[in-house]
């Protein structure tokens, strides 16, 4: 299982948020699984077209994902996935 961890800034909106185990082949599927556990959180990370918001970054095994539009970056079976706010947002 891969582990998805979140910036603490999201705790304001999702107080019980904690690292989550997911069984997902791609970043997109990982976020779908997270959304089922924290309804509404996906709207904080991607826009209505499914594109990663401009000031959100997702790292897989320390590498920034390359597909910000469709989130097709693959996730290894035991990968660490980090959801951060980008410094570009100020």
């Amino acid at each position: 299982m891969a582990t998805v961890s979140f910036t603490s800034a999201l705790n304001r909106f999702f107080p019980g948020l904690k690292p989550e185990q997911v069984d997902a082949p791609t970043v997109r599927e990982a976020l779908e699984q997270v959304e089922r556990r924290y309804p509404g959180i996906k709207d904080y990370l991607v826009d209505e077209q499914g594109c990663l918001r401009k000031h959100v970054n997702i790292f897989v095994e320390g590498e920034l994902i390359s597909d910000r539009k469709k989130l097709t970056d693959p996730i290894g079976a035991h990968a660490d996935v980090l959801v951060f706010q980008a410094l570009s947002g100020g």
Binding site: A9, L10, F13, D43, Y44, L45, D47, R53, H55, V56, Q85, A86, G89, G90
Partner: peptide, 14 residues
Amino acid sequence: TRAWWVGLAHRHWG
């Protein structure tokens, strides 16, 4: 309705 409505423009979260 006297309801208060607020739109927020989060810099990060939309």
